[in-house]
């Protein structure tokens, strides 16, 4: 790590006013310090936000939940209201990382996790995300873990979070505060596709701080499933993950959500795929058709084309599990 100065504000406005272009906010630190040790990120100042009043989980007037940005992943997953009303979110969180990391990692920080692309992490190589304009060796290199959807010539990295996949499916809203004041960002607008600017993972502006994530009232608790497919049974990033949620009216689907992880630069959703499920009877035919729509335009690289088929199978399995209402 490079030498940096350290500040520990106790008020949100104080934290924001301390922010300089080469500052970083730190909460759990589980990804930021990892990146700093690899010299991928070199902040001149760390602003410790752990003493800000961003703790706690509260029910909102609309019947949803407002989750403070500093709530740890484990506290969130094990919160009684989350377990009861948002089991999809609890499962997704518990599928990620390890117990130790979940105890430290914060809700806000989870949204800001950076890709596990080998080239991004190895600062001896080129990487458009790390050093814009240097190129993307992953395209013709080791790309087994890379994107099959929404990638660009500049970048084929994927977002590594599990929690975000569930939050995307649940239509969460991100609350942020910055030098220009407060605003809310729909979850699906929070992360970006790489396009020409892969160095930007999300739509936050300089100095903006995530203060909370809000979940709407409906958590699809009766029929949801998070399926994570990975190379070992635990403590591994997803090759493909699926957050599937259904509302069933008898055997007929009245509402559906599907989000994919491990396949794109952001949690992958398509309204058309979900619309295609509505009114259908829950079963393989409808699930396969929805998978077709969700994976439309998917294309792989030398080592990862299997992910397209894997994603299709995982979508069908997750929807099947969700329809059954089984807790995996």
């Amino acid at each position: 790590m490079n030498p940096f100065s350290y500040a520990r504000p106790t008020r949100i406005d104080e934290a924001i006013s301390l922010f300089q272009p080469d500052s970083r906010y730190i909460a759990g630190g589980t990804n930021l310090l990892d990146l700093m040790k690899e010299n991928v990120v070199r902040p001149a100042q760390l602003i410790d936000i752990t003493r800000l009043p961003l703790q706690g989980i509260e029910e909102t007037a609309e019947g949803g939940l407002r989750i403070g940005a500093l709530v740890s992943n484990s506290d969130l997953a094990w919160h009684p209201l989350v377990e009861r009303h948002y089991p999809l979110l609890a499962q997704a969180i518990l599928a990620g990382a390890s117990a130790q990391l979940r105890n430290m990692a914060s809700t806000g920080g989870n949204l800001l996790q950076r890709t596990r692309c080998y080239y991004f992490y190895d600062s001896t190589t080129a990487c458009n995300k790390r050093e814009p304009g240097t190129g993307c060796p992953a395209r013709s290199g080791l790309n087994r873990i890379h994107a099959i959807l929404g990638h660009s010539d500049a970048c084929i990295a994927v977002h590594p979070s599990d929690m975000c996949v569930a939050m995307a499916a649940l239509d969460a809203v991100v609350h942020v505060q910055g030098p220009q004041g407060e605003r809310q960002i729909a979850f699906n607008d929070f992360h970006r596709l790489p396009g020409e600017k892969p160095e930007r993972d999300n739509n936050l502006t300089d100095g903006e701080l995530i203060t909370a994530v809000e979940l709407p009232a409906s958590g699809f608790a009766e029929h949801s499933a998070y399926l994570k497919v990975r190379d070992r049974a635990s403590y591994a990033f997803a090759l493909v993950s699926v957050a599937a949620a259904l509302k069933l009216d008898g055997g007929t689907i009245s509402a559906a959500r599907i989000a994919l992880g491990g396949v794109a630069h952001k949690p992958w959703r398509r309204a058309e795929a979900e619309a295609a499920l509505v009114g259908q009877s829950a079963g393989d035919a409808a699930f396969n058709a929805a998978a077709d729509v969700l994976l439309q335009g998917a294309s792989g690289f030398e080592h990862n084309t299997f992910k397209i088929d894997l994603a299709r199978r995982a979508i069908v399995r997750a929807l099947t599990d969700a329809a059954k209402g089984v807790a995996p």
Partner: peptide
Amino acid sequence: SQIDHHLGRFMNHNFAEYHIPVNAD
């Protein structure tokens, strides 16, 4: 240990991507 032959370099040089079994395996 995955090597990028263009670079001649091992690239999954960590415990997150060089997988060894965990307890759950």
